[in-house]
Design a binder for these strands. Sequence first.
DNA 1: CGGTATCCGTTATGATACTG
DNA 2: CAGTATCATAACGGATACCG
Lengths: 133, 133
Amino acid sequence: MTTPKEPPGHGEDDCAFRSFLDRVADKWSMLIVVTLEQTPKQRMRFSALMRAVPGISQRMLTTTLRHLERDGLLTRHFYPEIPPRVEYELTALGKDLKSPMGQLVRWIRFNWKAIKKARGSFDRKKPGRDGRV
Amino acid sequence: MTTPKEPPGHGEDDCAFRSFLDRVADKWSMLIVVTLEQTPKQRMRFSALMRAVPGISQRMLTTTLRHLERDGLLTRHFYPEIPPRVEYELTALGKDLKSPMGQLVRWIRFNWKAIKKARGSFDRKKPGRDGRV
DNA sequence: CGGTATCCGTTATGATACTG
DNA sequence: CAGTATCATAACGGATACCG
């Protein structure tokens, strides 16, 4: 974002808000937060997260975890053993976020069949306009 | 999404879920849905949305509205007057979504100062690692 | 194990110009 | 007014290789 143009009538506060929306309204961020929410131990190792969030690449997991750490939503616990062990845990702020985020994810899980159906009928009506699956 | 590669061990259901997450967990989608939620008339014209969602370009507004329409979250009412008038309104599904989505947006509005602060202290500790605003 | 660095194709998106 | 079309660019994100 980096304050692209500052739309008139809105200060940097609004722009900052947007940059957080960008971060929080992110697929991987959501999946990681709800995954950490659900684990009984409250903490998960890097490799465990990798397995728990299917489809994520090592690079995206690292990147997203750093962003979440930077935003104060989780903490990284590094144990310099051999082999090294790293555990991630939601902060108080992160635990507070898991409720609204979890609700949204649950909403999608519950309603995606309706969305799928809507997409089907929309594509049938307007074949050439937005046919991308 | 277009079913990119189907990560092993997960059916199309999971993949479909992801594609909806991608769509719903989107900055512009969220801002549009919560904007439509808040308008008293329940409906908004294209130009009104353009004004209500500061910073969005005409192209992104059109694109996002089409996606939301395709997903069955809003309906497009076209009045072939001169000049033409188009109004957008949340469907029942869209109105159902506005609650979890609104909560998330409200959470960010309420907590972004804490996030801002967290970012500041993180960047002070690790200057070279993730300096992007 | 838990990363980091790099390459590189795909997608997202802003700017601009044009139209019914 | 409410788009559509086109272009250029930035950002995303996967694959791969290497490291402490």
